[in-house]
Design a protein around this nucleic acid. Structure first.
Length: 429
RNA sequence: GGAGAGGUGGCUGAGCGGUCGAAAGCACCCGACUUGAAAUCGGGUGAGGGCAUGCGCCCUCCGGGGGUUCGAAUCCCUCCCUCUCCGCCA
């Protein structure tokens, strides 16, 4: 949520910022509603004040042993007037709040202008693009040849956009996750957390998935409604929901391995082949909870932590700064890390690292105690994939493939693979 | 699933329907004492919001929602959560 005070004081500035996203904020309509709110609130509070005074007077009179019936008659219609005013105020307040919950975060000024993916700004590349003396196969073909990647079985069990892995591939997938967790815990200072995969609406509102993006979520038939978490960002960031964090505990750095569930509504016909876009995938997520003044540095550090995974795995990648038209709802600034996929001859997103500034914190009522003021103040939240396991598996298969269909195991994963150096030979394949 | 207890400020914990936003303690801040610190003493200290934006005035908040009442932290209904015991169980 955008700071309501800022919204009130400078709606034009907010509108101008949001316009960069292509979001139209109707300042006049907002002003009108806000004026209504102000008027109704003043009236309501005046009535409440009167009620309080009268009630106190009645209480005092009663204690003096005076008759209170005449006093009660005087306030007979006060209750009705108050209730009416309150109802209208509540209605306007709810409309305002609903509106504010649908406003995306303000963009940082460094976010490049643009309308879509094509306008994202490349910041750096790492690793040479591999050259093959044969036509590289994609991960689906490789998986079929290696055995153990079965989309048909998953379709029987559930439907499209699911996969089953078995043997070496299942183990490699698990090895990746273990490796990433170990790296972030032992070298990057994160604390591992285990969290619920089913989350309630309030948690999703807190991080910004609701109310606007309900179509992207799987909802469970349960009262109250529960949703399958689309990313660990939701349960992990909500660890600080409603909390006041002491300064000496900050910054908080959490890493969590979870499955992620996405309805992928609106992506029909997109990436229908293979594991790139699934309803269910595994991810190792990095979340940071920081003091406001350090969040921009934290974004650089967090992105570096995600990059470290790809460097250690020897996977070529680039980092792009998402443009104003492509950046997510809650983010003030986002770096996407894109890994090279030889079969597609292009970079594909494997991590997305964002600074949400105080946008999520305001929705979450997540605060820290600022020692300079002694008061609880909104903190800043960040997160990034570190990294998506499914897509990383794809990248390893495609980048490490050999002419004969075997796949080399990245050096750092060998210990996690029981010493195995090759997929496609020996037991397990 | 069955039975019971409870959810109050940063924490612990009081609170006959009427100056209760809430006692007390802890923690914290300021001051005094002290060479300094500790201890002690005095004072202060919840959050969100509206109007004024000089001081200030006012509203809301005692798990969530609804109700009774002139008036609710206090009574009623309902939902959620926590704890204890029993049952079942990965």
């Amino acid at each position: 949520m955008i700071d309501p005070k800022h919204l009130r004081n400078e709606p034009e500035a907010v509108a101008a910022n949001l316009a960069r996203r292509g979001y139209v904020f109707d300042v006049a309509a907002y002003r009108a509603l806000e004026a209504q709110r102000r008027e109704l609130q003043s009236v309501t509070q005046a009535l409440q004040n009167e009620r309080n005074q009268r009630s106190k007077a009645i209480g005092a009179a009663k204690q003096r042993g005076e008759a209170i019936e005449p006093l009660k008659v005087e306030v007979a219609d006060l209750g009705d007037r108050l209730e009416q005013a309150q109802q209208r105020l509540t209605e306007v307040q709810q409309r305002l709040e609903a509106w504010q919950l649908e406003l995306p975060n303000l963009l940082d000024e460094r976010v490049p202008e643009g309308s879509d993916e094509a306008d994202n700004l490349e910041l750096r590349q790492w690793g040479g693009i591999p050259v093959f003396d044969f036509t590289p196969r994609d991960h689906v073909d490789l998986g079929a040849q290696l055995g153990g990647m079965d989309f048909e079985a998953a379709a029987r069990i559930t439907g499209s956009r699911f996969v089953t892995l078995s043997g070496d591939l299942a183990r490699l997938h698990r090895a990746l996750i273990q490796y990433m967790l170990d790296l972030h815990i032992s070298e990057h200072g994160y604390r591992e957390v285990y969290v619920p995969y089913l989350v309630n609406a309030q948690a999703l509102i807190g991080t910004g998935q609701l109310p606007k993006f309900a179509d992207d979520l799987f909802c469970i038939d349960h009262d109250p409604e529960w949703y399958l978490a689309p990313t660990a960002e939701v349960p992990v960031t909500n660890l600080v929901q409603g909390q006041i964090i002491e300064e000496h505990d900050m910054p908080l750095r959490f890493v969590s391995h979870t499955p992620c569930f996405r309805a992928e509504a609106g992506s029909y016909g997109k990436d229908t082949r293979g594991m790139i876009r699934q309803h269910q995938f595994e991810k190792v997520e990095l979340v940071q909870v920081v003091r406001p003044h350090e969040s921009w540095n934290a974004l650089e550090a967090l992105t570096g932590h995600a990059e470290a995974v790809l460097r250690r795995l020897g996977l070529p990648y680039r980092v792009v700064s998402l443009c104003s038209g492509d950046i997510g709802f809650a983010a003030a600034r986002t770096y996407d890390i894109e890994v090279w996929l030889p079969a597609q001859q292009r970079y594909r997103e494997i991590s997305s690292c964002s600074n949400f500034t105080d946008f999520q914190a305001r929705r979450l009522k997540a605060r820290w105690r600022n020692p300079e003021t002694g008061k609880p103040e909104l903190l800043h939240t960040l997160n990034g994939s570190g990294v998506a396991a499914g897509r990383c598996l794809v990248a390893i298969l495609e980048n490490y493939q050999q002419a004969d269909g075997r796949v080399a195991v990245p050096e750092v994963l060998v210990p996690y693979m029981g010493g195995r150096r090759w997929l496609g030979e020996g037991e397990g394949s």
